[in-house]
Amino acid sequence: MTPRIVAATALRVLEQLRRDPRTLAMIIVVPCVLIFLLKYVLEGQEGSFDRVGGPLVGLFPLIVMFLVTSITMLRERTTGTLERLMTLPLAKLDLLLGYGIAFALVAAVQATIVSAVAFGLLGVEAAGSTIAVVLLAIANAILGMALGLLASAFAQTEFQAVQFMPAFILPQLLLCGLFVPREQMAPALEALSYALPMSYAFDALQRVTADGSLGGRGWLDVAATIGATLLALVLAAATLRRRTP
């Protein structure tokens, strides 16, 4: 690994995002609007918004970064820049870390603004610290990025990459406990939820927003989230080939 190249890659990815202000605006504005909508949709249902609002602040970065990364990386594959990078003195880890740092920074901004809107403006209640929510959101963004890097290897076109969002992410969102607590699901679904990384991300967020602190189990959830991120990164690195057919 070469820190100079990691930093250069992170800068380059940020430069690309800066050239696309519409995407940047969507990254920030869309989650705020969705939280706002959710508040009024759930208005009649006592406590519902408080239960899902807080964790959702921390899950948005995962979803958004998955999408943005899978498309950025797919472009890298289809435009030949990845092939060029693979002929240069750049380690695969340099590329992955560069992406990680860039998207973690974007996620930090996104999570800070979305939490300010949710906790400040819309009055979402969090028993624990909102800073912990933002930190978890950043961790989740990196998980989303890692999953996106991996998913990009299985898409040939941007159209397919977009389809991975409902295929990879929606089932996780349905099963993570956001809509229905996991222990109330059919046993098979509950068992399946334990295999999905977003379940752990959600659990940790819920512990902070509902219980007030991570506690011992919460730290295990964080560890599982980080473990899933590392696993996805290792698998993603394996899909970056220097030689292709």
Binding site: A8, L11, R12, D20
Partner: peptide
């Protein structure tokens, strides 16, 4: 190696592209 189809970042400027590759090298 220069590939047959230009392999640079189309959303970056000429200089930004070169700056990135200069840092790598």
């Amino acid at each position: 190696y220069v590939t047959q189809a230009p392999s640079v970042y189309r959303d970056l400027t000429v200089r930004e592209n070169l700056r990135y590759f200069a840092r790598i090298l």
